[in-house]
Design a protein around this nucleic acid. Structure first.
Lengths: 268, 268
DNA sequence: TCAAAAACGATCAATAACGATCATATCGCA
DNA sequence: TGCGATATGATCGTTATTGATCGTTTTTGA
């Protein structure tokens, strides 16, 4: 067996499992302990894995997401003030008893705090949102079925016949990568598919975007402007964007920012 | 078992319960007290947990959790030793890559700790099981869609067309209210419906019941004995029950109780 | 309060993992 | 084919980890 081949196997094994022992790799590659140790040492200096006694472990250890409060470690803290203000306005649209769909995302996640005092029927595809509402509110929670994708903490189903089709809501709330004349834009094709499925199950579509999203562009169009009922953003929205929304007959809600106002930065 | 593996299991166990004893961890990892104490001391200086007399406790535990925070506050603590031992044996049937179904319940929940070091495809209808495995393991998690019932922390779908139908597994693991000559017995009609749906999606059916369940009777029959492939119980199983299982051609696995006990035996 | 039981810490032997070295095997190239 | 370079496997001394045993400390229960 060639070196490259072993390395491929080792990296594959170490990514699948928290730890791989030298013995397991010996059995897997049918080579000697000495060779495996040399390979591990080599991959260690290449930062492809971490060398530990007895074997090797992944460089990206399984995320220890502390508690319910902090799901997506990176994105969540960007523009947090704007997101909170926007989410607050979004929840103000909801009344007890309403059936709503909350699509997963860092902005929509901020809805969980004001939602804690409500009693709505919440359908979501976000594991952290469901978790938080389950533990900290009395809302009825419905979850979509499917595989839980760890990076986004989103539940995706490749099938068309999931329970999503049995839920119909007055409003759906969602964030987006960008919002322009062509419509709502998203980056990931997988997300596109899931979100389009959800959009079809709601009457009104409420989009939550901080003002930086009006200049952000992405490659994939999720839906045209006409489909959007309401846009909630912060007071950094450019006039041109406001005019664009007005012409498309979209309700615009501007969430006022508090005293400590920071410039919105694009959050990827 | 290697160091990292033990640490993973210890951290998994300590998150599930406010305090874990050294003895429990010895049983869970099949290593000596001295080793566990060293591990706990090590994780203590790493601030991964807090070392206390008798065992260890979680670092951020005094956290208030609502009703739904812990799976079943009452049921969870009874027969905990038996449940852990039984769950341990159940996980020993699983190999990396296996597709398994884990039905929600207090006994099956104990499978999460030994599962922490595995890499399987786990389909479950239990929110706590999904949550724990998501945070403490690298398993692929698939969740059934539907309403989250807070009392049982189970996700139920009244519809027949949910994503459950798209998942097929080698084995399904489930607990039960009782196990008698007439078959597997359950108390709640709603659970019956959901569990029957799941049973149809697996090849083998593995039932996890502590020995008290052989004398328990319930009103509703979930499935006949013939459908059961394997029963895992503790060594308190009465001879009559063992004979009943043998006549029904069911594999019986007895989980040893206590530190130094006879190894598990398989028959039938 | 005292005695029994459990938990603990320290120590030591056994074991497993490691690193270094050398002999052999394989590959590239002329 | 022959040669050099590199990769691999085996051996051995060293080091780290583990489990058992001891005596000590803490908790439990009468």
């Amino acid at each position: 067996m060639h070196e490259k081949e072993r390395h491929r196997i080792i990296l594959s094994a170490v990514q699948d499992r928290p730890v791989v022992t030298v013995q397991e790799l010996v059995a897997l590659t049918d080579s000697s302990e000495a060779t495996i140790r040399r390979d591990i040492a080599q991959l260690h200096v290449q930062k492809k894995l971490r060398r530990v006694r007895g074997g090797a472990e992944s460089m990206h250890p399984p995320q220890f997401v502390g508690l319910a409060g902090r799901p997506f470690s990176v994105n969540e803290t960007i523009n947090i003030a704007q997101k909170r203000a926007i989410a607050q306005k979004a929840v103000e649209l909801c009344e007890d008893g309403d059936a709503i769909i909350v699509n997963g995302g860092t902005t929509t996640f901020q809805m969980v705090h004001p939602l804690a005092t409500k009693r709505c029927q919440v359908f979501t595809n976000s594991f952290p949102i469901a978790e938080h509402l389950l533990k900290n509110s009395k809302n009825t929670i419905m979850l979509s079925g499917g595989v839980i994708y760890r990076e986004q903490n989103i539940i995706l189903s490749p099938f068309d016949n999931d329970v999503t089709r049995n839920f119909y809501a007055k409003r759906m709330f969602m964030g987006a990568q960008g919002l322009g004349p062509l419509g709502l834009m998203e980056a990931d094709p997988l997300l596109i598919q899931a979100e389009q499925k959800l959009i079809g199950q709601a009457d009104e579509l409420v989009v939550l975007v901080d003002s930086s999203k009006f200049s952000a562009r992405s490659s994939l169009i999720l839906c045209p402007l006409e489909r959007i009922t309401t846009v909630i953003t912060d007071d950094g929205i450019p006039d041109s964007a406001a005019k664009m929304l007005e012409q498309a007959d979209i309700d615009l809600i501007v969430a006022p920012m508090g005293a400590a106002q920071s410039k919105a930065t694009s959050s990827g």
